[in-house]
């Protein structure tokens, strides 16, 4: 059987809100390492990878590796019933066809359990090779969200260019064009407010803003976001989940016809 108890239940609620519009059904893989998920969006352009390490849970028991197929929209409906301060426990039996979500209020005066049917999902696990990136930009997550939202009112695609000068986000549409440049800025009070540019080589890649905006739904998970880019690899947009792991989005670049 498996049983995970997450004191900061709101993390799981935030993860679901971040991915449920991108991915419909997914297998959650449970092992002694942690709770993870890898899934592509329906058009096979983007891939989501989630890892919540076992050490981040207050209690984590997983007797044997288990793959639980879930409809993310249904899971989100259930997790929306948990209060933001609730402790969430996930339970399942080996070979069973249901998963139980238990919500406890912080004062322990309200305890709810919700059972959800599991599904058989045939999904291909893809191997994600470790890569060296030409450029990595770390910036405040809210700033990145604002940029993607602003640019999508003007164009459909964004060109992200990293040079010594900084990182430039550009778009073009029927009404005109826009360029937003963020320079490296490490002289801030809090490290999460910094913009840090690690450039080995300049890089310039084109992406669909529709996907970028979808990824920024993960903004409540983390104060900062990192963008890892190489000219021959998908973009990695990573939100670290404090003390537990990460939520990563991989997006294939658009190429010139």
């Amino acid at each position: 059987m498996l049983e995970f108890r997450l004191v900061q239940g709101s993390l799981l609620k935030k993860v679901m809100e971040a991915i449920k519009d991108l991915v419909t059904d997914a297998n959650f893989e449970c092992s002694s390492t942690g709770f993870s998920l890898q899934a592509m969006d329906s058009s096979h352009v983007a891939l989501v990878a989630l890892l919540l390490r076992s050490e981040g849970f207050e209690h984590y028991r997983c007797d044997r590796n288990l793959s639980m197929g879930m409809n993310l929209n249904n899971m989100s409906k259930m997790l929306k019933c948990a209060g933001n301060d609730d402790i969430i426990t996930i339970k399942a039996d080996d070979g069973g066809d249901i998963v139980t979500f238990m919500f406890e209020s912080p004062s322990q005066d309200k305890i709810s359990d919700f059972e959800m049917k599991l599904m058989d999902i045939s999904s291909e696990q893809l191997g994600i090779p470790e890569s060296e990136y030409q450029s990595i930009v770390r910036m405040p997550a809210a700033e990145f969200q604002r940029i993607c939202k602003d640019l999508s009112s003007i164009g459909d695609t964004v060109i992200i260019s990293v040079t010594k000068e900084g990182v430039k986000f550009s778009t073009r549409g029927d009404i005109g064009s826009a360029n937003i440049v963020c320079r490296q800025n490490t002289s801030v009070d809090k490290p999460e407010e910094a913009t840090v540019i690690e450039m080995k080589e300049p890089v310039s890649l084109t992406f669909a803003l529709r996907y970028m905006n979808s990824f920024t739904k993960a903004t409540p998970l983390s104060n900062s976001v990192s963008l890892s880019m190489s000219s021959d690899l998908p973009l990695v947009v990573e939100y670290k989940i404090a003390d537990m792991g990460y939520l990563r989005f991989y997006l294939a670049p658009k190429i010139e016809d």
Partner: peptide, 14 residues
């Protein structure tokens, strides 16, 4: 014009 590439071609199958 740009066309979208599929993500799976960058990763290892199986």
């Amino acid at each position: 014009h740009h066309s979208q590439t599929l993500i799976s071609r960058f990763f290892i199958r199986g």
